[in-house]
Design a protein around this nucleic acid. Structure first.
Length: 580
RNA sequence: GCGCCCGUAGCUCAGCUGGAUAGAGUACUUGGCUACGAACCAAGGGGUCGGGAGUUCGAAUCUCUCCGGGCGCGCCA
């Protein structure tokens, strides 16, 4: 609809304004036509008068007057007012409004979709938590966010691929295996268990299952545990080496099974959270430095060829300062092992090689210092850093009322994502994770998320949806079917729903903006406002006492509101409720 | 010290690609069920948009600076 007016205004500029060609281009790029906040300003408003007036040094209101006449030609337009400093407020004819309601309803679950992305492929990498334990509530925010922007971008015409990067190659895997091994042999009690090992109960569960499969002889390593270093980090390293030496194949088996089991729980938790991935990418598939054909070797080779690397203190460094990083970074340590950064760089090269038009990384905010170096490496590899967008997600603090919920991975007992889903359900959890801009701190109150009143926004929005559903079924008891076309009543005089129709018509614009800015919370707040208007209307109007013609008109309008709530929630990965 | 993010009503937050009187919820005061879901609605008070300067016809929004808070600055991942 906005399109229509934009084109018409551009048409005016080109043919009738008499402005300079260059000025017209500037004006076209700067003026905005949008749906108004409320109906006192008409349905559509444009600042074309202000923008041109400012540029040309003319009176904005006079310019607006000229364009006003041009707009009145359109058959869809009922009235146009020049308002304030020079805004043009456009009032649409009611018959045309009815047409737009019909058209929107016909689009059904596609209402709100756009072709902004034009089929471009976009990959979103998110969660990517180390496979060393269950997901905690911090991961939940990244999971909800990545999944939601996936849905939103898809709705905006992008071809979306969601990926989880599994760090299965580093020292942490060794620590995981060592922790399981220790539990397997009951070497320590909870108190004396090495601090830098993983101490959670899930390690015991893994050990139990391995034990029943492998039937490992216990007390096999009693002699190994004497003379351990004091420092807990050194301690775990010594243990890892001991176990590897003791029984190489058993070590490998334990490591593989542990990884598999942890990944399984992560996958299950994400499934319960209604988050799915198109691809699970293993860091180990990047290969090793020893293999000169591996992805990691060839990525580093490419940088070497470009002369961006150098040797210093026995290590191989990448010059990332050149691209704005604070300091240069090590790719290969002095002991010959690749750094995490080297692997990540190879991973990002691989993403680009796979042909995605755009890459989005959803990272915890504590990684922001890492952005520069990954951008630098992409540029070093000959790609534009603009291909990649890193979206930071801040930490979420959980509260139970006023009480902060403690999360400590150290102690091994922590509030997991699974716990959260069990307590408030996946939908409420997703909703609250998404209710604030991702890169800002979020205080997440579990009590609030469970409450059944207006303060709980998801409840309030669902309630609006359920109310309409309930009204529809009431209507169906009295009539054969819901009205499905306003053709017959488009000239009706019932205008009480106009505000609702107007609010609902903003939805496609909201989805686009949410996609452009990667901010799902825009949809959250929009739905809250829409629900508020629905409740207000519902309260003031005894709908089923209206004339039959009015009832049809109302039901039609409310169906649109219901559709918007349902589509909006679904973009957040939440199912709208017919009853609650 | 350097870098990134944030500071809007008592509290929790919207609004930020500059636009028309700065908005919700909560709390407080008050009114509304013989009506389709009152789990709701309506009305009222409450603000130097952290301070200051600049750009502009116009600044919560952009720039600079100061103050206050968070996070990051490994041959960890």
């Amino acid at each position: 609809m906005i399109e229509l007016f934009n084109n018409h205004i551009c048409n005016f500029l080109d043919q009738k304004s008499g402005f300079d060609e260059d000025d017209i281009q500037v004006i076209k790029s700067k003026f905005k036509t949008e749906i108004t906040d409320d109906l006192s300003k008409g349905h559509i408003t444009t600042n074309i008068g202000l923008v041109s007036g400012s540029l040309l040094g003319k009176n904005p209101r006079e310019i607006a007057e000229g364009i006003k006449d041009h707009l009145l030609i359109l058959k869809e337009v009922g009235n146009v007012e020049v308002a304030g400093p020079g805004f043009l407020n456009i009032f649409i004819k009611r018959s045309y409004l009815a047409t737009t309601v019909n058209a929107s309803l016909k689009l059904n679950e596609k209402f709100g979709h756009s072709d902004m992305g034009n089929g471009q492929s976009i990959q979103i990498e998110f969660v990517s938590a180390n496979p060393t334990g269950p997901l905690h509530v911090g991961h939940g925010r990244g999971a909800a966010f990545g999944d939601a922007i996936g849905k939103i971008l898809q709705a905006n015409g992008y071809a979306v691929s969601k990926e989880y990067y599994i760090n299965d190659a580093g020292r942490q895997m060794d620590i995981l295996a060592a922790s399981v091994w220790l539990r397997l042999h009951n070497c320590f009690d909870d108190k004396s268990f090495p601090e830098s090992g993983y101490r959670g109960k899930y390690i015991i569960d893994i050990a139990d299952q391995i034990d029943s499969n492998l039937k490992i002889a216990s007390n096999k390593i009693d002699g190994l545990l004497s003379n351990l270093p004091e420092d807990s980090e050194e301690q775990i390293d010594v243990l890892i080496k001991l176990f590897q030496k003791e029984d190489k194949s058993l070590w490998k088996q334990i490591k593989d099974i542990s990884l598999k089991m942890v990944l399984k729980t992560i996958e299950d938790d994400l499934k319960d959270f209604k988050v799915d991935f198109d691809n699970w990418y293993y860091e180990s598939s990047l290969g090793s430095l020893q293999d000169s054909d591996s992805k990691i070797s060839s990525a580093i080779d490419k940088l070497k060829t470009k002369g961006l690397t150098y040797e210093e203190k026995g290590a191989i460094w990448l010059n990332t300062e050149k691209a704005g990083d604070d300091k240069n970074r090590v790719l290969i340590r002095d002991d010959g092992r690749a750094t995490y950064f080297a692997a990540d760089l190879a991973y990002h090269k691989d993403k680009v090689d796979r042909g995605f038009d755009k890459l989005i990384n959803v990272w915890g905010a504590d990684h922001h210092g890492y952005i520069k170096r990954i951008e630098a490496s992409l540029e070093g590899l000959g790609f534009s850093k603009n291909k990649l967008h890193v979206q930071l997600v801040q930490f979420a603090n959980l509260y139970q009322g006023k009480q902060k919920v403690k999360m400590s991975t150290r102690s091994g007992s922590f509030y997991t994502l699974k716990d959260l889903i069990a307590e408030i359900g996946a939908d409420a959890a997703r909703f609250y994770y998404l209710s604030k801009q991702a890169d800002q701190h979020l205080d997440f109150d579990i009590e609030l998320a469970k409450s059944q009143n207006k303060e709980n926004l998801i409840f309030y929005i669902q309630y609006a949806h359920a109310r309409i559903a309930s009204l529809q079924s009431k209507y169906l008891e009295l009539n054969q079917s819901l009205p499905n076309d306003l053709e017959e009543i488009r000239n009706g005089s019932y205008t009480a729903c106009d505000k609702l129709i107007h609010a609902a018509s903003k939805f496609p614009g909201v989805v686009e903006r949410s996609g452009e800015t990667l901010q799902p919370h825009i949809i959250v707040f929009y739905l809250r406002d829409l629900a508020q208007q629905l409740h207000s209307y519902y309260n003031d109007n005894p709908i089923l006492k209206e004339s039959q013609e009015n009832q049809e008109s109302i039901l039609q309008s409310l169906s649109l509101v219901k559709l918007v709530i349902s589509n909006g929630l679904s973009l957040l990965g939440i199912e709208a409720l017919e009853k609650m």
